[in-house]
């Protein structure tokens, strides 16, 4: 029971991170209809930005934790959003209106570029960070096994919930959200009605990159070590999560992220660590057999 509870907490934390990244995939897919393969690497850039910011703050002598966290959060979100914007501007915008495969290849190229860019500038070795926050609550103690809920985990789950609420508000209530939904339904019609499509798509990429940066920052604090390759694995998992939940659906992305996180953690906890990715992909395949458009995805209606 205690073991189960601990795994549940770990799974939810991991799932929250996947969910945040998955939202970036699902939003871009919903509006532009492309798989943004570089999104995982944007998350990696976000983690590096956060790491560098932590280190610079350490050198600058700002050690009051809440202030430092706030500064890191803002700086890494802003800088990473610029990456999201630039990737869209350089690699995707010139290809708008081309076949579905052209932006995909461009995105894969961008992903390779970003990985090697960070590899060249910062080296291949993992970058450790001393945890800025440590400690946590002990929820339960039984037979020498303690169930821990660390402050970082609480922070991750809390921030994710807050961001999800904020995001739902933006998408459903604001002008920007309305424009995004309009572009998702019919881009040409939306532009005829005065929606600036380029701007809307850029903002979508910026928002996605911002969420990825938050995820990157939280992972840097949670695991305490990052390298240039973390974006690939996390990207694939988050994309799997987005598809599992139904690509194009925001709640679906979050649900998918949580499911993938839970599956991974429980599989590692009760079976074998080595095959946790196999388990995650197998669940994806099983779900897609019975619901070909994911858990919360709308069925595609094809007009002839």
């Amino acid at each position: 029971m205690e073991y189960f509870l601990q795994q549940l907490i770990n799974g939810l934390t991991l799932g929250a991170v996947y969910g945040l990244i998955a939202i970036g995939y699902t939003m871009v897919y919903g509006i532009v209809g492309m798989i943004n393969f570089a999104h995982g690497d944007i998350y990696m850039i976000g983690a590096f930005n956060a790491l560098i910011c932590f280190l610079v703050l350490g050198v600058a002598g700002i050690t009051w934790v809440p202030l430092a966290l706030l500064i890191v959060l803002i700086v890494s979100v802003v800088l990473t959003s610029v990456y999201g914007w630039s990737v869209e501007r350089i690699a995707y915008r010139p290809l708008r209106g081309q076949s579905r495969l052209a932006p995909l290849i461009s995105a894969i190229g961008m992903s390779i570029f970003l990985q090697n860019y960070v590899l060249l500038l910062h080296g291949a070795r993992g970058k450790p960070l001393r945890a800025p926050i440590s400690g946590g609550f002990t929820l339960m103690e039984h037979d020498g096994f303690t169930v821990q809920l660390s402050f970082v985990q609480m922070g991750i789950i809390g921030i994710t919930v807050l961001l999800m609420l904020g995001f739902t508000y933006v998408i459903t209530q604001t002008k920007l959200g309305r424009q995004q939904r309009a572009c998702e339904q019919d881009m040409k019609m939306a532009s005829l009605l005065g929606v600036d499509i380029n701007r809307t798509i850029s903002v979508t990429f910026v928002l996605g990159a911002g969420l990825a940066a938050v995820a990157g920052m939280m992972v840097t604090m949670y695991y305490g070590v990052i390298d240039f390759y973390i974006g690939f694995v996390a990207g694939i998992k988050a994309f799997t999560a987005a598809v599992l939940g139904g690509i194009g659906s925001l709640p679906g992305a979050m649900l998918g992220g949580l499911l993938i996180g839970l599956i991974e953690v429980f599989w590692s906890g009760y079976f074998t660590v080595e095959y946790k990715d196999v388990a995650a992909f197998s669940v994806l395949v099983l779900v897609l057999i019975f619901r070909p458009t994911g858990l919360l995805g709308r069925p595609e209606v094809e007009k002839v």
Partner: peptide, 15 residues
């Protein structure tokens, strides 16, 4: 640097 150029090359050729 090869892979860096490789990635950028893919993007540029596609554009």
């Amino acid at each position: 640097y090869r892979m860096l150029a490789f990635g950028m090359g893919m993007v540029l050729i596609m554009i």
